[in-house]
């Protein structure tokens, strides 16, 4: 089982889109997949067609009180696939603040997942992080075996990953965890934009084979599918966005096997 935290503190770099679509692609290939929405914006939850505001319990209740609400009890099946979602909720913002004074605040998700693994087995668990490096993202990193970093081909990409690197180093001082990089994913790539080509090449130069060969091109069908509440691969399979994520899934499976 691989547990992948999809992380980047920069907003709008396609973390949520990547979790939704990579998850759906893996499930379509018969892999049992669990998606976890750790973002108080709950975009993944909405993007999967689940109304978080109607839920009595969601991830925030699990993180606050796993005894009363084990993770298993909040899971929602998605489409007709071996795909499940642990829905997020706006109250996760409050949870972050409430957890702050607790010594085990960064271990809540990992503990909840380990309890779940005693009953269920998954091939892949994908965690959608909020655009911050706060307690929720720390929970994701501690629970993860791997990191996937989506990034736009922009100037700030390097500074952003440098900050993430610093944070991981800082976490090693106080937390027990083990994590490795599954890959850096270039997203929102615009064909014919010299700037994008240049920056993507530099990212490759620095991260070498840790950068996925697959890049996700900017494609309006992706945002349309989000509004419809389904992953692009279930909305318009022929769209370039869908094909990019299919290719990414193949590459991810190869990496996992290799």
């Amino acid at each position: 089982m691989k547990v992948v935290a999809v992380v980047n503190q920069k907003g709008g770099v396609a973390k949520t889109t990547t979790v939704a679509n990579l998850g759906a692609c893996l499930a379509e290939r018969g892999k049992r997949t669990l998606l976890i929405d750790l973002d108080p914006q709950a975009n993944l939850t909405v993007g999967m067609g689940v109304a978080w505001y109607e839920l009595e319990s969601a991830l925030h209740t699990v993180l606050l009180d796993p005894e009363t609400t084990p993770l298993r009890t909040i899971l929602k099946p998605i489409a007709d696939l071996p795909l499940e979602l642990a829905p997020g909720h706006l109250d996760l913002a409050q949870t972050e603040a409430v957890l702050l004074p607790h010594a085990d605040k960064a271990y809540r998700l990992r503990n909840a997942l380990e309890a779940l693994y005693t009953e269920e087995t998954y091939d892949w668990v994908l965690i959608d992080c909020p655009p911050s490096l706060g307690t929720l993202t720390q929970n994701a990193i501690v629970a993860a075996t791997h990191l996937l970093i989506p990034t736009e081909p922009k100037f700030y990409a390097f500074a952003g990953m440098d900050t993430l690197n610093k944070m991981i180093v800082a976490l090693t001082k106080s937390l027990r965890f083990r994590v490795e990089l599954l890959g850096v994913l270039v997203t929102m790539y615009e064909r014919g934009t010299r700037l994008h080509a240049t920056i993507a090449a530099e990212i490759r130069e620095r991260f070498e084979d840790k950068v996925f060969e697959t890049m996700i091109y900017k494609n309006v069908r992706v945002s349309e599918s989000e509004l419809e509440g389904v992953p692009i691969i279930l909305y318009d399979r022929r769209a370039s966005g869908a094909q990019n994520y299919e290719a990414l899934a193949e590459e991810v499976l190869l990496r996992a096997a290799g």
Binding site: D162, K173, R176, F177, T198, E205, R206, K210
Partner: peptide, 27 residues
């Protein structure tokens, strides 16, 4: 400019991965 910027950045922990699980002292 990118090269110059990128070379001052550090991605080692990310690229190499980290583990404190068997580490008795630090954590």
């Amino acid at each position: 400019r990118l090269r110059k910027g990128a070379s001052s950045f550090d991605f080692d922990a990310l690229i190499q991965g980290v583990s404190t699980e068997d580490d008795a002292t630090e954590a």
